[in-house]
Design a binder for these strands. Structure first.
Lengths: 138, 138
DNA sequence: ATAGCTGCAAATGCTTTGCAAGGCC
DNA sequence: GGCCTTGCAAAGCATTTGCAGCTAT
């Protein structure tokens, strides 16, 4: 209770980012609970609701710094929104369009049997698999 | 030669869209060659270079009308750009980040072995697989 | 002290929309 | 003629950036 930010603090120090008030608040929200999928806008609401004032610009900056540092992963599922995933391991997603919600697919639920050959001078930087779900009664 | 638009014309009539000058020009560019992956911006350049004047707004409108009609498929690979695919069959993609180019993956090159279970009241509306490639010498 | 960080407001880039003028049936 | 289309310009939205002031070390 007297050191509510110790975990977040260590997290930031590890990647060499100054533990500012804003970054501590964001880190806490992002990594205290496992496996979050969040947008900048959503995180902005959360952090401000939690009492810490952080500007949207800083949220965007921080999310990208965290992504560059390997703490987050960007997930492309919707052309109008960018999601960030706190699970940075190799895995795939289910996107619930009607709920605008993202969920991990556990590795044993979806298996890719083979990948295409890689052209000369190129390399695979990532494989993105998104299963799009929608409500049945549409 | 005297009926250069006959194919495009049939195409539009099939989906019940009036064969206007603009739509004919776009249809021709999109469907005369197989398997195109294109953005609104790019198509805009192409059509204007080909001599037909079509506004960007109309390009966007038309691309969406075609998508609704089932002539095109939207592909989500990059958060800042929307690609449309003239191949509407079920298949997957390779995205070359450095070239901003999209390519089909032939169905025998990538196989999904299993899919996650579908929650009550939901259905799978699509499965998107994108292999992201980048230049090796980065 | 100073390099890094934050926040505002403005700018950006892609996409959509309102509406008046024009084109197809 | 009447309804569908088009095009412009303006609006919209998510995201980025410039810069002056603030903060951690």
């Amino acid at each position: 209770m007297t050191r509510p930010y110790s975990k977040a603090l260590r997290c930031l120090q590890e990647v060499g980012l100054r533990p500012t008030r804003q970054r501590l608040a964001l880190t806490k929200l992002l990594f205290d609970n496992n496996d979050r999928h969040i947008t900048a806008e959503l995180l902005h609401h959360e952090v401000n609701e939690a009492g810490a004032k952080v500007s949207l610009a800083t949220i965007y900056n921080t999310l990208h710094q965290f992504t560059d540092a390997g703490l987050l992963k960007e997930v492309i599922v919707d052309s109008s929104r960018t999601y960030f995933d706190t699970n940075v391991s190799d895995h795939h997603h289910i996107y619930f369009k009607d709920d605008e919600e993202l969920q991990d697919i556990s590795s044993d639920e979806l298996v890719i049997k083979s990948l295409p050959s890689v052209p000369e001078g190129k390399k695979i930087s990532g494989v993105s698999v998104v299963v799009h779900m929608e409500n049945k009664a549409d």
